[in-house]
Design a protein around this nucleic acid. Sequence first.
DNA 1: TATTAGCACTCTCTCTTAATGAGTGCTAAC
DNA 2: GTTAGCACTCATTAAGAGAGAGTGCTAATA
Lengths: 347, 347
Amino acid sequence: MLTNRQLLILQVTVDDFIETAQPVGSRQISKKEGVTYSPATIRNDMADLEDMGFLEKTHTSSGRVPSEKGYRYYVDNMLTPQRIPNVELQQIRSVFEERMLETEQVIRKSAKILSELTNYTSILLGLDVRKHRIKRFSIVPLTDDSAVAIIVTDSGHVENRVFSIPENFTSSDIEKMVNMLNDKLVGVHLHELSSKLELVTKTILQQRIGHLENLFGSFNKAISIEHGHEDKVYYGGKMHLLNQPEFNDVAKARSIMYWMDHVNQIPGIFPLDKMGIQIRIGSENNHLAMENCSVITATYSIGEEQTGSIAIIGPTRMDYKRVVSLLDIMSGDLSKELSKLLHGHYE
Amino acid sequence: MLTNRQLLILQVTVDDFIETAQPVGSRQISKKEGVTYSPATIRNDMADLEDMGFLEKTHTSSGRVPSEKGYRYYVDNMLTPQRIPNVELQQIRSVFEERMLETEQVIRKSAKILSELTNYTSILLGLDVRKHRIKRFSIVPLTDDSAVAIIVTDSGHVENRVFSIPENFTSSDIEKMVNMLNDKLVGVHLHELSSKLELVTKTILQQRIGHLENLFGSFNKAISIEHGHEDKVYYGGKMHLLNQPEFNDVAKARSIMYWMDHVNQIPGIFPLDKMGIQIRIGSENNHLAMENCSVITATYSIGEEQTGSIAIIGPTRMDYKRVVSLLDIMSGDLSKELSKLLHGHYE
DNA sequence: TATTAGCACTCTCTCTTAATGAGTGCTAAC
DNA sequence: GTTAGCACTCATTAAGAGAGAGTGCTAATA
């Protein structure tokens, strides 16, 4: 168990290191406001904190630096939410002020402002399109043997794919198909589309219109290709990370950039199932490149099904207080605004 | 005028520096295959080449490094096209082998393979959507006061925008509008859409259906927003540049990354008007961040109007021979493949 | 008993110095 | 015209010295 003084010293050490990026010495702490102990006393406590694994030394006679365990303790127990100045609240609200009509725009702009306010890198995961419901099908022929299929969802999102038309199909066949699609499949989730489509195809076989089978097959092939289906990822301030002193090494910078570019392919980065704010410190990210990084994620949601995710990536030495507060505000606002956008009212 | 020996020495110097990234000394050159002169002789010629501005020294007693003028001369006069090994040709061709139906896919994959083959960064500028012709309009209502407008072009590209529906318009009004749009505006170029639309709106006023004016206005506002209209840019191997020894400095790396992210907003980077291969060396790029970079661009085209652009960004010390050959092959193949895709046949 | 002052010790950082070696420029010989 | 020889320059590396920041331990103090 930590004494009060040890708690104070741990907190001051972490705060100071977050601010200066330099190892913190006992003398430096003793001069802080609110600290009344002499350097020697502080040294004793710091040695204890080191024994307990909360602090580390970079070398024998250096000041202390928080360990991962130290950050973890700090984050779990000492994170008093920070008041965000009005000017900045204003900035966030301004994202939603001008009336934008498309979710993509809103998300993109949110990513930008978040990275600007934090000076770290922001990653926003768009709403999972697969959970949107189909509103309308439409097919536009392009050449003799190809056409573009268009699927509009209830969120206003538009998916489109070119597919090839087998020989001997006329435009009236295609019209028939579109009608059937709109008849049978409006309202289903995008991710169910492929399986439901097969059901429909089976029904076709049982009816007179069995010759449409090929057409449906080609269509199904086109929409099953995953290429556009993966979740959309929006970045803000990718370069901000390079400003941090811990990434002055090009090799490190490169591996982090690489990690970021593939973040949506790594499972478990965005915990969409857990609501609220999650903090992952250093090695908790389970990736070598992220050793010196922390990731803070928050979720936003519309209704009960649709959830998206916001993340901020910074050095482990990042300003947790501030980032958590900002993410909290942002995710709330985003939920509200998108609900309004998609359902025409606040939920 | 340069003597033959000077030409030889310049060429060997540039080639060697491209390969090793180290200043080239006279002794090193004398040991090269095809060089029969002693280091002293070579030193004399190198001094002359330096006087003429083709070579530079990094310090008094260092070997020589090509100057921008040296690279320029090399590129203009000594660039014998390199034979690309069959294995690599095969790799390029493989992009087009599996039958892909969408231009975006083809371009994306081309960018990837190009960066892999060169180990530099590739940038592909997609076809200018604004030159595509409109094939079909369609409007899908979302909520009471919003709808998504969809425009399909002859290339299979789909543009979509959400727009708000003023009060008191019924779905039959919208149907009327769609019919009129399809009636009057199919076949026009996307970039003419806005101006032609105004003409149509004027005609409306002169007819009974004047009450549709507001609806057209709202629609026009939505499609005039430029946000999706800017040319699409596809990157390949963004991180490759960081592997080059000249960018070991994080500050340099950052400014180049920044430049790349904004490259489509800088006019004149992609000379779409000039066909063929263009090489811009160092300061010829007119940007401080690109001092140490060269950009090689090639154009590809479909028919006579539609042109896109391919670029490779590398250090000034890049392997010009190889890159030029690769770009030449790639741009040709891309033109062929996309023509087939969009017009159903080779041009 | 908890806190603090004092002091020796450790380790990094920076600056200096010296040695090494790659490469040049010049001059004289071939 | 070409080359060998040699003095000279400058980057790079290693080693050493001094300064400074910070620690750990012990003994004194409240």
